[in-house]
Simulated assay, not measured.
Amino acid sequence: MFYWFLKRVLAGPILRMLFRPWVRGLDNLPSDGPAIIAGNHNHFMDSIFVPLLAPRPVVYLAKKDYFTGRGLKGAVTRWFFKLNNQLPMDRAGGTGSQASLESGLKVLGEGNSLGIYPEGTRSPDGKLYRGRTGVARLVLESGAPVIPVAIIGTDKIQPPGRLIPKFRRVGIVFGSAMDFSKYEGLPADRFLLRSVTDEIMYEIMRLSGQEYVDKYASSVKTKLLTSSKPKRTEGSKPADQRKKGSTAEGADEAPDESD
């Protein structure tokens, strides 16, 4: 299986040499059966370090953009994520999110471990943000235990504005399994979903030592992008009133949300 070849022969030894990852709490991971591995998210390599150090494969739900890119780069990215046991996830809501939920339930139903980031996107500043309730839906519908995980140090690998990553130590801490069977049979209303999600986020915060912010990371990202846009000075013309073919002063190219 290429997954094991990549982990043990091709990429794994190189990553271990460059980042010297350390791990704690491996005995908290069940050796078999379904498990939801819920962690914080600071860097795209979080989805690489956790499977690298876990004794069993971890299937991650990754944003669908990684699977829809065009050209050579898109093909390579799609190939890489598929070989790393990652599945596309639609975060737009509606039928797309339902399909992602069903994909996750299928992974768990086959007795595998599923990795998920309750924050829904990467933290913009290394803090821990409010979890989205998709993880609670997975928990309640699958009945699988939750293994909270803290991924430490990946926020320092590639700070904003840095193109070349820093090769520094990172760590993974697996917490004790969380059992939510006490809620079996109860209606999964928004209050229960929020309660389960917050309980998971508290454990992640306790393990990681991160500062918790009771806001969605995506909202904070949007606010940061909006505030970084240069304001139009008084008397300047709107873009649609400038001469055709002219270059807009201070034009913004909103960067793609990476995760």
Rank of each mutant, 00 (worst) to 15 (best):
R162L: 13
F174W: 04
K73P: 07
F44A: 02
F19Q: 04
V149T: 15
V135N: 04
K127F: 15
Q210I: 00
K221E: 05
K82E: 05
T77W: 03
V146Y: 13
D27I: 01
G120M: 15
P255T: 00
I14C: 04
D252E: 06
V173R: 08
L108W: 06
L10R: 00
G120V: 08
S31H: 02
K166D: 08
L207S: 11
Y66V: 03
F174S: 03
I172Y: 06
K63H: 14
K182P: 00
R242P: 05
F49A: 06
F167N: 08
K106T: 09
D90E: 09
L108R: 11
V139C: 07
M45I: 05
P160F: 07
R206N: 09
G104R: 07
L186F: 00
T222E: 14
A136S: 04
G33S: 04
G185V: 00
V76M: 15
G111C: 11
P159D: 07
A188C: 02
N112P: 03
S31K: 15
Q241R: 14
S31T: 12
S47H: 08
L108G: 12
S218H: 01
T247Y: 08
R78N: 12
I147N: 10
G153P: 00
I48Y: 11
V170G: 11
P118N: 15
V139Q: 05
G126D: 13
L87E: 03
E184M: 00
K243F: 05
D27V: 03
F174L: 06
Y212Q: 03
P238H: 15
G209V: 08
I152V: 15
K106L: 07
K231M: 04
T233D: 05
I151T: 01
Y117G: 13
I172K: 03
I116W: 15
P124M: 13
W79I: 06
P148A: 11
D256P: 00
R242I: 13
G115H: 06
V76A: 14
R16G: 13
I37P: 04
P118R: 11
I37W: 01
L108H: 09
S123W: 13
R168N: 00
T95M: 03
G153Y: 02
F80N: 02
L163S: 11
K182V: 05
D240K: 14
E141I: 01
R24W: 14
K64A: 13
A54F: 14
L83M: 06
Y212G: 08
G120W: 14
R122G: 13
V9H: 08
L15P: 01
L163W: 14
P255S: 00
L108Y: 07
N112L: 14
G96R: 08
D125H: 15
E211H: 03
K73W: 11
Y212M: 04
G74Q: 07
G143I: 02
T95F: 03
L18T: 06
G33K: 01
F167M: 10
W22E: 13
R242Y: 15
F80P: 06
P34Q: 05
E110N: 11
G109R: 06
V76F: 15
A239W: 15
P165W: 12
I116S: 14
P57N: 01
L101H: 07
L114D: 12
V170F: 10
T68G: 10
E234C: 04
A248P: 08
V139W: 01
Y216C: 02
A11H: 10
F167H: 12
G96Q: 05
S103V: 10
L138N: 02
N28I: 01
E211N: 06
